[in-house]
């Protein structure tokens, strides 16, 4: 059996090397550009610190344990918020896809909630649910909900009618149809929504921390900028947030690869 060679497929000698070279090249260009802006503009470190200053501060802050406790808090908020939001969104998306009534009743609220800026909602949620974990999880869940619900709805709706007829001919129960046919068939779309959702969850956690909280990377940004006036630390925190977002995104992509597989 022959398999078509896919240029984008990882793990093939020359292609992989070339890809890695490109990734590295892009990173170098980014860092050099950053450095050039600092040099040409003559910016002091409290406006725009140079990349090596941020790098050094990043390593030192982690070594001294300045960032770690905040990162753990934020990561917990993101994880709980994402799991809650995405879990509910898959169920809601299924209902939206399969019930006209659910679509009519729910979709106005769904769209309205999405159109309302989370930045405006966050202080309210903090007011109602306090400045603890609950309010952040809620904000994360809220922001994750929309993309996952919509992609689930689209995915479930586009399940081949032939598969559903097959399920009926095999006398599959409602639950069997959902778990063996519909959800697996819609999985690529559902996971696509989760990719978007997981990056938004990071935003949600930071916004939630800004609205009220005494721990987390969002709080650390405020501390670094305000009372500490340590702008390199602020950048180091931003770098941490970006790395968390990137890692979570990669985790979803890996899960997608494992579950959906190549050439699906």
């Amino acid at each position: 059996m022959t398999r078509q060679r896919d240029a984008g497929q990882p793990g093939r000698g020359p292609t992989r090397l070339r890809d890695m070279a490109l990734v590295l090249g892009a990173a170098v260009i980014f860092l050099v550009g950053w450095k050039l802006i600092v040099i040409i503009g003559g910016y002091p470190a409290f406006i725009l610190p140079a990349p090596e200053v941020v790098g050094e501060r990043f390593l030192r802050a982690w070594a001294q344990g300045v960032i770690a406790p905040h990162a753990v808090t934020t990561l917990a908020e993101i994880t709980l918020g994402f799991v809650t939001g995405a879990g509910l969104a898959v169920m809601a998306g299924y209902a939206l896809a399969r019930s006209r009534l659910a679509e009519r009743v729910l979709s106005p609220y769904l769209v309205a909630a999405q159109a309302t800026p989370i930045l405006a909602l966050a202080p309210l949620i903090a007011l109602w649910f306090g400045s603890g974990l609950t309010s952040k999880v809620l904000i994360c869940a809220l922001i994750v909900f929309f993309p996952v619900a919509v992609s689930t709805m689209v995915g479930i709706r586009s399940v081949d009618a032939g598969l559903l007829e097959l399920g009926r001919s095999l006398r599959a129960t409602r639950w069997q149809v959902v778990t063996r046919l519909e959800v697996p068939a819609a999985l690529p779309q559902i996971l696509g929504g989760m990719r978007v959702g997981v990056t938004l969850a990071v935003v949600g956690a930071i916004v939630g921390e800004w609205a009220g909280g005494d721990r987390g990377l969002g709080v650390l940004i405020n501390l670094a900028r305000g009372s500490l006036f340590d702008i390199p630390l602020m950048f180091a925190t931003l770098l941490t947030i970006a790395l968390i977002g990137l890692s979570l995104y990669l985790i979803v992509v890996i899960v997608e690869r494992r579950l959906v597989g190549a050439g699906w």
Binding site: D160, E165, L166, R180, A185, L187, L259, V260, W264
Partner: peptide, 12 residues
Amino acid sequence: GICFQEPRLLPW
């Protein structure tokens, strides 16, 4: 047992 015009196999 029914066999349809298309195979209708589960691609995953």
